[in-house]
Amino acid sequence: IAGVAVAVGIGGPGATFWMILAGLMGMASKFTECTLGVKYRNEYADGTVSGGPMYYITKGFAERGVPGGKILAVFFAVFCILGSLGGGNMFQANQAHQQIAGIVGDYPGWITGVIFAGVVFAVIIGGLKSIASVTEKVVPFMGILYVLAALVIILMNLDKVGWAFGQIFEGAFTGLGIAGGFVGALIQGFKRAAFSNEAGVGSAAIAHSAVRTKEPITEGVVSLLEPFIDTVVICTMTALVIIITQQLVIDPATGNYMVENGNIVTASGASGVGLTSAAFGSAFSWFPYVLAVAVILFAFSTMISWSYYGLKAWTYLFGEGKSKELVFKVMFCIFVVIGAAANLGPVIDFSDAAIFAMAVVNIIGLYVLMPVVKREMVSYMGRLKSGEIRKFKSR
């Protein structure tokens, strides 16, 4: 909701093209990292599981005789903790506060932060089962709600959809605008795609590692659907709503994009969720209220999910134990308050830096361990064709 607005606001409509392309390419990296996450996870006697890049980089590199795995894993864990506090926490709280304040009137962000922190703490203190029970109910509801709202606006402006896609393709390869030129569109598209679907970042592999399966490849196949649904479908719908309703134009004086009412669209100004809210509100005056519910639900589910990612990175560095886990959970909730009270510019810069650092380390690991994934896939497909897997399941 917010990330797409940042991409289109800074990179112009053309950023959408690169965002879609990054989503399609992200299907491959998501498949690879989630397969590795299940294969190299740690399973403990009490039934808990720890997995993700920290574990498959350490174990996989050692298995293949590649040095430096432990060092890379430590780097990833540090960056993952920072990413959980930034993109998975402060950015979410910040954008939720912006949307609420836009409806009820301006008020101190720390108030929103304290409320969110209290609710988030109550959920994450219950552990993974508590997180799963909440997100499995919240995510489908908010997804359907948001998609239906976007579909209504697109169908109402069906005659402009062709023009909007024309703007997307034209903007992807032209050099118009300082920030919205070819390079700006490409960078913003890829940054926001990675921010939304986390493909290649490694965070999703931490969650997928907790699945109940003995076949790593099956989880890889499930996971590759995520970038397609999240980025190719839902993020494209958001971009279309913004482009159709706001009609972004370039300010010849600055080269920045601005909407037709003259407000300059930048990462720290009329961007993020505010731009998306304006786009939805232009169709129906009450849509920002619907969007506020979606934003709150998205932000809440993202925060409690990222708290789990950060926690697993924390326990990898400092060891398992309830007291150690509690330290991270309290720190995580403090950053919820900080994010809600801060300005968007510094928050998104910090978030991008942390997530980029995670991706660099993780993708190095994915390239080194690609042969392992290929072996797993060949083995699984062979057993599937021979009927061995079906026979095993029927026993």
Rank of each mutant, 00 (worst) to 15 (best):
Phe169Asp: 04
His97Met: 01
Cys34Trp: 06
Val183Ile: 15
Leu344Ser: 08
Ala164His: 09
Gln188Asp: 00
Trp18Asn: 10
Gly3Lys: 13
Tyr367Glu: 00
Tyr40Cys: 08
Thr302Phe: 10
Ala96Trp: 04
Ala204Lys: 07
Leu85Met: 07
Ala193Glu: 03
Gly87Tyr: 08
Ala101Arg: 02
Ala122Cys: 12
Gln167Lys: 14
Val295Asn: 05
Gly382Glu: 09
Pro371Gln: 10
Ile206Val: 15
Ser305Pro: 01
Lys324Thr: 15
Gly83Thr: 07
Ala357Tyr: 06
Val259Glu: 13
Gly184Tyr: 08
Val360Ala: 09
Val361Ala: 13
Ile168Cys: 01
Ile264Ser: 13
Pro288Leu: 08
Phe298Leu: 07
Ala150Phe: 00
Ala340Cys: 04
Ala353Ile: 14
Phe79Trp: 11
Gly387Arg: 14
Val232Arg: 00
Ser379Lys: 15
Phe318Ser: 05
Lys129Leu: 01
Ala199Tyr: 05
Asn263Glu: 08
Ala132Glu: 13
Phe195Arg: 04
Ala357Trp: 05
Val295Arg: 02
Ala199Ile: 09
Ala341Trp: 07
Gln247Leu: 07
Leu176Asn: 15
Ala239Val: 06
Ser29Glu: 09
Ile178Met: 13
Thr48His: 13
Val361Tyr: 03
Leu85Asp: 03
Met258Cys: 06
Phe121Ile: 01
Gly143Val: 02
Met19Lys: 00
Pro53Met: 06
Gly47Glu: 05
Val368Arg: 06
Val336Thr: 13
Thr315Met: 08
Pro371Tyr: 11
Glu170Asn: 12
Ala270Trp: 09
Lys30Ser: 07
Gln188Thr: 01
Val49Leu: 04
Asn42Leu: 13
Ser323Gln: 05
Val337Ser: 04
Ile57Arg: 07
Tyr309Arg: 04
Met370Arg: 14
Leu369Lys: 12
Pro252Arg: 07
Ser203Gln: 09
Val4Trp: 02
Ala5Thr: 13
Ser223Trp: 01
Val114Met: 14
Gly14Asn: 11
Gly162Met: 03
Thr213Pro: 12
Pro140Leu: 01
